[in-house]
């Protein structure tokens, strides 16, 4: 190896180290802060000084915070199941059947997932009030369909389009109806794609903020992002940074584990969908 190639190798690894450091440090620092109380918290340090669990006790002792975690789990789960149910048949039609206006329909569905949520806010507010769902989890489940359903349809369509024609042709020759083709031929092949899309839709619903902020008012109906955004201390000036960091860690660690476990699938789903989760 020449001197210059060694130099560039070293530079490359420094670059890699820098990227990893920047990516990981903020979360590391949040974990660090979540274990600190009193003066320790307000002194900047780079290495753990103490292992004090009192911030976690504060957060997990709050009935309203636990309630918001349960709300989030419920809303995200129902949203994902509903989206998958509606999307499987729709994406079969979009991926495997040729009909006029298919491209335009796909483009419209994509447009729905990308348009600004604020543009439907007042109309949706009216609809939810009319249905009597204001300040309930169902208001969120309905409104989250706006972004989870198009996304799920879109990704499942791209997955299904890539499956070979032969498997379907054999079933058609055997006289199978489209419904049988979906449930007996495609569904077993589609499980991996459905896990990926379901996971991404779950993350999207778990993180959603605008609708959750608009359509819930009571502490007992809130989801996690609204609860964390509204975390306040004894007085307005005094922001309880310790408990906020503890709450952030509690709701983020499961997500990070999920994402790392399903890493390859998620990257594949993201590139197929091209949509930010």
């Amino acid at each position: 190896m020449t001197a210059s190639s060694i130099f560039w190798n070293v530079m490359f690894y420094i670059g890699v180290a820098l990227v990893v450091l920047i990516a990981v440090f903020p979360f590391y620092y949040a974990v660090l802060s979540s274990f600190e109380t009193g003066t320790d918290l307000f002194r900047v340090n780079y290495l753990p000084q103490s292992w004090d669990f009192s911030n976690y006790e504060t957060v997990l002792g709050r009935a309203s915070f636990l309630r918001s975690v349960l709300n989030s789990v419920f809303v995200a789960t129902v949203t994902v199941l509903a989206a998958l149910l509606l999307a499987v048949t729709a994406s079969y039609a979009l991926a495997r059947v040729r009909f006029r206006g298919r491209g335009l329909l796909l483009l419209t569905i994509l447009a729905v997932s990308m348009f600004p949520q604020i543009a439907v806010l007042s109309g949706l507010y009216e609809l939810i009030n009319w249905l009597g769902l204001y300040n309930t989890p169902w208001a969120l489940i309905i409104s989250y369909t706006i972004f989870t359903l198009p996304f799920t349809v879109w990704v499942l369509t791209t997955f299904m389009r890539d499956l070979p024609v032969e498997i379907e042709e054999a079933a058609i020759v055997d006289g199978a109806s489209p419904w049988v083709i979906i449930t007996k031929v495609f569904l077993p092949l589609l499980w991996p794609a459905m896990v990926t899309t379901g996971l991404l839709a779950f993350i999207g619903a778990w993180n959603e903020f605008l609708f959750a902020l608009t359509f819930t008012i009571d502490e007992t109906q809130r989801t996690v992002p609204v609860a964390i955004a509204n975390f306040s201390g004894a007085s307005v000036q005094e922001i309880p940074w310790g408990p906020i960091m503890a709450a952030s860690v509690v709701v983020t660690v499961p997500l990070i584990i999920l994402v790392l476990v399903f890493q390859r699938k998620i990257v594949a789903g993201l590139t197929a969908g091209g949509v930010k989760g």
């Binding site: 903020p26 979360f27 993180n207 964390i228 960091m245 952030s248 709701v251 990070i256 994402v259």
Partner: peptide, 14 residues
């Protein structure tokens, strides 16, 4: 992937 996995509200707070 970690920054991407963290909810926006949590990132904002952190």
């Amino acid at each position: 992937l970690i920054p991407w996995a963290i909810p926006t509200i949590v990132s904002a707070r952190m």
